[in-house]
Design a protein around this nucleic acid. Structure first.
Lengths: 241, 241
DNA sequence: TCAAAAGTGTTCCGAATACACCCATGC
DNA sequence: GCATGGGTGTATTCGGAACACTTTTGA
């Protein structure tokens, strides 16, 4: 759709102002992990366009809002989730991606620690649900493209940066961690070697607790030692798996 | 600056339309390589705002232009460079980054094969020059931030993807390649080991030519075998240096 | 014959791999 | 005691690092 009537800012009257007519949005690919499966959070739209379709969590950016805030706000507004790891990954600007005009969208991906509670749909979201990334519904706009790019980015990042921990609860066992990475990367690790490698990195803090209520030897719990990681990173260490 | 008068599209009359008021631009961090130094191409602005300042190669995106085209076009328009490797890396959207209003900019980085000829400044660029990345002038807007992020991205990408070849002429010697990577990554390689590693990847096509006019044994020339690389990538090979 | 860079070969070491084995717990 | 996952030890292999060496050219 062609947008008429260029908009002028009176003080400057520069020709460049005629292009101040874009729409801008953010869309968040929210990843979760549960029992060996990578999930993504989608909402069902209760607003036009694409009312009733499943979509990524996103909305138009307000004129006085910066991008990172916008992505956090929209996530909270539509699902109630707060203080979530979030990272910009790509900006999508095809001419025809929005039926109402030229809207460019900045893609973020987020990782949430626990998907065991159900997110609360609010604002114009009719419902919010976790979907397995291998079993997705049809999506609004170009959200399928955005989602695929998000998955690709996650799979790349996860090997070079310790962001995987964002998907686990703060206390986890080494097997939890191993199963997560196996799900993310799509291949198996040797148990002994995986433990050796991750422990030698010195970025896990062992807790004096064990996971109980299990009918076998209980596993020790660990947490990610972020302070230590930052320190090691400064000294030239780089996470690789 | 607060932008008044929300813009409405008459057919829909949705409240979301009031946010269709953003400016959108692209900025290209153009890298070159010459005699062991990483360079970046800057233009001197002959337009307001920041007239006379050095800046990245960028401009507002036209309403009917997609982002990738926009970045290619602006590079050609301002410097005459065509068919250049180009990749989106980050989008910058701070509220105060443009003095005339809310302009969000999409950052691209480009790698050019030869900086031996002088780029031609045109359109509203007064001049265009290569600067060593360690000796930069003061830059317009938030271009210094964008440039730093671009450099960071280049240094990351170059280790995992064979994009470094874009900075060399199409025929090069193994030592050329080694010196390039040493400049990019900031450390030395052992000659023998570097050769062994790169040749074992099977992504270089040896030519039956040598570099001459040198007062020592002439080196064999190679070119990057892109077809072969694509093939190997499909089979699971990944470039690492 | 000498300088300078091209190009090769070999040893050494540490990290990744494969795999076997023992341990603690609930039932 | 046995099933189940937790947790450890070790021999072998492979790739990278270090470094010494030979080759080819122009002057």
């Amino acid at each position: 759709m062609k947008i008429p009537n260029p908009y002028y800012i009176s003080d400057y009257k520069l020709p460049l102002i005629e292009y101040f007519v874009f729409g801008l949005s953010v869309d968040c690919v929210v990843f979760g992990y549960h029992e060996g499966e990578i999930k993504v959070l989608l909402i069902q739209r209760e607003a036009e366009p694409y009312r009733g379709h499943w979509a990524l969590i996103g909305d138009l950016v307000e004129p006085e809002q910066n991008l990172h805030d916008a992505s956090n706000n929209v996530l909270e507004k539509l699902t109630g989730l707060k203080n979530i790891f979030m990272k910009q990954f790509f900006t999508f600007g095809s001419l025809d991606r929005h039926p109402l005009g030229r809207v460019v969208t900045v893609g973020y991906f987020s990782l949430v620690k626990s998907i065991s509670y159900h997110p609360i749909a609010s604002s114009w979201a009719k419902s919010a649900e976790w979907f397995n990334i291998n079993d997705l519904p049809e999506l609004a706009f170009d959200h399928h493209t955005i989602l695929l790019k998000g998955i690709e980015t996650l799979k790349n990042e996860v090997r070079h940066k310790p962001i995987g921990f964002e998907l686990l609860p703060s206390k986890f066992t080494l097997l939890d961690l191993q199963l997560l990475y196996e799900a993310l990367l799509g291949y198996k690790f040797d148990k002994s070697n995986f433990r050796k490698k991750i422990l030698e990195m010195n970025i896990l803090k062992p807790l004096n607790e064990v996971k109980d209520n299990v009918s076998h030897r209980p596993a020790k719990l660990f947490k990610f030692d972020e302070k230590r990681y930052r320190q090691l990173e400064k000294e030239g260490f780089s996470f690789e798996l």
